[in-house]
Design a protein around this nucleic acid. Structure first.
Lengths: 343, 343
DNA sequence: GGACGGACTGGAAGCGCTCCCAGTTTCAGG
DNA sequence: CCTGAAACTGGGAGCGCTTCCAGTCCGTCC
C-alpha cells in the first residue's frame, strides 16, 4: 500500500510527486498560470482529484500577501442598529456576490473601542484584502483609519464630509424628494418630517430631499423634529410634532421604524391615517408591511447595496478603478397615504 | 538615520534585532511562553512598541496551524430568513463575545450549493478553528459535513435528529407551553396553532410545547396549520384556520412574523383581537411591538444565543468539554391577549 | 573547588506555498 | 544540419513565524 497517510492532509508536494512533476509545475497548473503543457496539467488535475488536495490558505497567503478575505465593518456601538433587518440584508447581498469568488467575508462591529481596535488590527496585519465600511458618523475616527489603510476601502453610504474614492450609496435625496412629492400630490400642505440623526449623511440627505420638494411646491419646510431612526425615537418625535404643529396633515419619516412609531402615536391621539394625516416612511423593510395601515414608503435595494459594494471592492482588488455608484430608489404606495387629492 | 524602511512592516526579526535578542526569544516574549528573563522580555516589549510591530497572522497560522477565526454558517437558501432581525441579533451577540478575544468572525451562507461548497472548503482547508452552525433542516447534508469536520462544531439550536455534542438552544418547548397556558388561563378553549416547518427542530419543539399545554388543560389540540415562519405564510395559515375552524377563539403562532400575518387576516375578517380571538407569537423581535395591537409573545434571548454559542466554541477550542446549554424563554404580555378570564 | 541541575538562549528546521530564474527541450527557419 | 528563439521545466530561495533542542551560563551544594 502506498496510500497517503490519512492523518495529514495532502500538500502540494504530494500532488507533484503523484503527478510526476515538480512542485512549481503543480503550483502553476493549479493556479492556471501559463507555461504548463497540456499533459502535465491534466496529470496534476488528476492527482489533485485523487488526493483530495486543497491548498493551504495560510501558506498561500504568506507567500502571496493576499488573504482571500474582505471585511465588512459596521461602525456602530448601538445594538439597536442590528434590531432591524437592514444589515442582515446587506450581509445577504454581500454573501451572494462573494459566492462565485474565493473570497471569504469577515464581519467586524467597529462601534465600541474594542471593535475599532480589532478592525485596526485586522487592517494593519493584513488579515483582509479590502474593507467595506458602513454607517460612518460625522466625526468618526474610523475615517482616519480608512484613509491610512493600505488596502482599498469601499464605503457603503457616504461619510458626512468628504467624498471617498469608492462608494456605493442609495439615492436618499431623490427618494426623500419622491416621498414628499407624493404627499404634496395627495393634497397635503402642512407636511412635517422626522429626520434621522443629522450626523449621518443618509439622514442629512433625506432631510435635504424633503426640503427640495417642499421648496419646489412652495411650501414651508419648518415642521421638523429629529430622531434616531428607531421606533421609539419616531414616536417621541411625533409626539413633539403634534404638540408644536397640531395642524399638520402629513409626515415624512426618514425611516420605516420611525414611521411605525409615528403611526402608533397618531393612533393614540385619534388621528386617522391616512384620513387625517398621511404618513410616508423610508427603507421598505419588512416592518413597512406589518404596520396598520401598511406603510407607503421609499424602497431602497438593500441587498443590492451589499452586492454592489462587494463587486466594487473586488474590481478594485482586480486593478480596476470604478466610479462611485448611486442606487435608485422608488416609491411604494401602500395604505398610509391617500392616492387622490380630496380637497 | 537608521529608521526602518517605511514601505515594509516590521517583522519579528526587526524586533529581535532592535531588542538585542534572538528571534526565538522575541517570539517567546511576545507570546508569553516561559523561559525569557525579565530584562529581555522588557526589551522586546519596548521594541514592539517602538516599531509598531504586529505579528503576521498568515505566518503564525502556517506555523501553528491555528487561524484565529471562527465561522458562523447559516444553513439557508432563502433570502427571507435574513428579512428579519433574528440573525442580525445572533451576529451581534457573537461579535460582542468575540471582542475580548483575538478571534475573527467569518460568515458563510451555506444554503445554496455554492455556499455549501464554500463552507466545506473553509472547513477542509482549515480557514477557521471552529464552526457555529445554525438553522439546520431535518435532512440537511451539512450534518454530514459537520460530523466529518476536523474542527469543533457548535450548533445553534438542535438538528431534528440526533443530539450533537455541543449546542446552545432556546427552551422552545417550554416557551410554547408558557404561551399556550397563558391563553388557557385567559379563558380561551378553542385554541389553534400555526406551526413553523416541522423539518426544523425549533418548529417541532414549539408544536410539542403547544400540545403539552393543551393536554394538561385537557383541551383538543387538533386546530393546526403549518406554515414557514413568514408573515405571508402566517396569513395564509390563518385564512385556512378560519375556514376549517370558524369557532376558534385563540391562536398560538410559532413566530412573531406569522402572528403578524395572522393578525392581519383576523382584522380583515372582522375578528377583534384580543376581544374575539387572542393571539400569541414567539421570538419577541421588533415586529412584535410594531403590530396593532402589540403582540403578546414569548421572548427568547437572541443575542445571548449567539454569545453563548461563541463562548462554548471558544471553551472547546481551549480544551474544555462543556455541556449543552438551554436558554430560558419568558412570556411578554402585550395587547393581543386578554389578561383576565371574561367568561 | 568541582560537579551538577536548572534557567535561559539562539541556531536551525520546518509550516506549505509562490515565483524567480537558470537550464533544458522543442522546433521552425535558414 | 545548425542556430536561435520560444516554450516549458524544476531547483531553490524565500514569505514570517513557532518550536525543538543542543548548548551556555549561572548558582548551589557537597
Amino acid at each position: 500500500m502506498d496510500t497517503a497517510p490519512p492523518d495529514r492532509s495532502p500538500t502540494l508536494d504530494d500532488v507533484a510527486e503523484r503527478a510526476g512533476v515538480s512542485r512549481s509545475v503543480a503550483s502553476r497548473a493549479i493556479n492556471n498560470v501559463g507555461n504548463v503543457s497540456a499533459p502535465k496539467r491534466a496529470a496534476v488535475q488528476r492527482a489533485v482529484r485523487e488526493l483530495g488536495y486543497i491548498p493551504n490558505p495560510s501558506a498561500r497567503a504568506l507567500a502571496t500577501n493576499r488573504i482571500g478575505a474582505v471585511v465588512l465593518a459596521v461602525a456602530t456601538d448601538q445594538p439597536g442598529i442590528f434590531a432591524d433587518a437592514f444589515f442582515a440584508q446587506v450581509i445577504y447581498g454581500i454573501s451572494v456576490a462573494l459566492e462565485p469568488t474565493d473570497f471569504t467575508l469577515t464581519l467586524v462591529l467597529a462601534g465600541r473601542p474594542e471593535g475599532r481596535a480589532k478592525l485596526q488590527q485586522i487592517v494593519r496585519s493584513r488579515r483582509a484584502d479590502g474593507i467595506m465600511l458602513m454607517n460612518l458618523h460625522g466625526d468618526d475616527p474610523l475615517t482616519k483609519l480608512a484613509e491610512q489603510a493600505t488596502v482599498p476601502v469601499v464605503y457603503g453610504g457616504r461619510p458626512l464630509r468628504g467624498e471617498p474614492r469608492w462608494y456605493v450609496d442609495t439615492d436618499n435625496r431623490g427618494g426623500a424628494r419622491l416621498a414628499t412629492e407624493h404627499l404634496v400630490e395627495a393634497g397635503h400642505r402642512r407636511i412635517a418630517t422626522i429626520t434621522g440623526p443629522l450626523s449621518l449623511e443618509v439622514a442629512e440627505a433625506r432631510y435635504r430631499g424633503f426640503r427640495d420638494a417642499m421648496a419646489v411646491a412652495e411650501l414651508p419646510a419648518g415642521r421638523v423634529e429629529h430622531a434616531d431612526f428607531s421606533e421609539a425615537g419616531g414616536a417621541a418625535a411625533m409626539t413633539r410634532l403634534l404638540q408644536a404643529y397640531p395642524d399638520l396633515d402629513a409626515v415624512f419619516a426618514a425611516s420605516d421604524n420611525m414611521a411605525a412609531g409615528a403611526l402608533r402615536v397618531l393612533r393614540a391621539h385619534g388621528r386617522a391615517v391616512p384620513g387625517d394625516v398621511g404618513v410616508v416612511g423610508f427603507d421598505d423593510l419588512q416592518t413597512a408591511q406589518h404596520t396598520d395601515p401598511q406603510l407607503t414608503t421609499v424602497h431602497q435595494p438593500v441587498p443590492a447595496l451589499g452586492a454592489e459594494m462587494t463587486r466594487m471592492l473586488l474590481s478594485v482588488l482586480d486593478g480596476a478603478r470604478p466610479t462611485p455608484l448611486i442606487l435608485p430608489t422608488r416609491l411604494v404606495v401602500r395604505g398610509s397615504t391617500r392616492t387622490t387629492d380630496r380637497r
